[in-house]
Amino acid sequence: MTRFEFVKSSRSASSGECVEVATNVAGTVAVRDSKRPTGPVVEVGDAAWAVFLRVARSRTAS
C-alpha cells in the first residue's frame, strides 16, 4: 500500500475544517479530510491536480 505523507492546507480554517494533501508519491496527488485521517482518500494525477489548482485560483482571484 502506498504511504502518503499528508500536509494540512495552509488555508485551513481555525475551526479545523480543512483538507490535507500528499504530493510525495510520483505522479499522484492524494487529498483527504483532516477530520477523518482514516477515511477515504481521493487520488488524482499530477495533470488533473494542476488544472484543479489553476481553476480554483482563478476563481478566488476575482
Results as ranks from 00 to 15, higher is better:
R57G: 10
D46A: 14
C18M: 12
G27L: 01
N24K: 00
G39T: 02
A61E: 14
A61N: 11
T60C: 13
A47F: 13
A61S: 10
V41K: 06
V19C: 06
F4L: 03
V55P: 00
V42I: 13
G39V: 07
T60V: 13
A26W: 03
P37A: 02
R36L: 15
A56V: 12
A22K: 01
V29K: 06
R54T: 13
V21E: 05
D33K: 02
T60A: 14
T38N: 13
A47N: 04
R32F: 06
T28S: 15
S15H: 03
E5N: 03
S10V: 04
R11K: 09
R32Y: 00
D46M: 09
A30E: 01
P40Q: 10
E5A: 09
F4R: 01
E5F: 06
S58L: 07
S14M: 07
S58P: 01
E17M: 07
S62Y: 09
F52M: 07
M1H: 14
A22H: 03
V42D: 08
P37F: 00
A13I: 03
A61R: 12
S10A: 11
V21A: 06
R36A: 15
A48I: 10
F52I: 03
K35T: 04
V41D: 07
A22C: 01
V41W: 05
T60S: 15
K35D: 02
T38W: 10
K8V: 14
T23W: 05
S15Y: 04
T28D: 11
R36P: 05
S58M: 13
G45P: 06
A61Q: 12
A13F: 02
T23G: 03
F52K: 01
L53W: 12
S14D: 12
R3A: 15
V7T: 15
S62E: 12
R32M: 11
W49D: 00
A56W: 07
G45E: 06
A30T: 06
R11C: 14
T38P: 02
S34I: 04
V41H: 06
A56P: 01
R57N: 08
G16T: 00
S58G: 08
V44N: 07
G45W: 11
A48H: 13
F6E: 02
A56Q: 08
R36M: 09
G27V: 02
V7R: 13
G39C: 04
V25C: 09
G27D: 11
C18K: 03
S58A: 14
T28V: 13
R3W: 12
W49P: 00
G16R: 01
V19T: 04
R57K: 15
A13W: 00
S9H: 01
E5R: 02
V55C: 02
A48M: 07
T38Q: 14
A22D: 05
A47S: 10
P37M: 07
S34D: 11
A50S: 12
S58E: 12
V44E: 03
A26S: 11
A26I: 08
K8W: 05
W49V: 00
F4P: 01
R32Q: 05
E5Q: 11
S58C: 04
P40S: 12
A26T: 15
A13N: 14
T23Q: 15
L53C: 13
A47I: 08
V19Y: 04
A50L: 13
V25L: 08
K8N: 14
E17V: 10
A26C: 03
L53I: 10
S9N: 06
T2V: 14
V19D: 04
P40K: 05
T60L: 15
S58H: 09
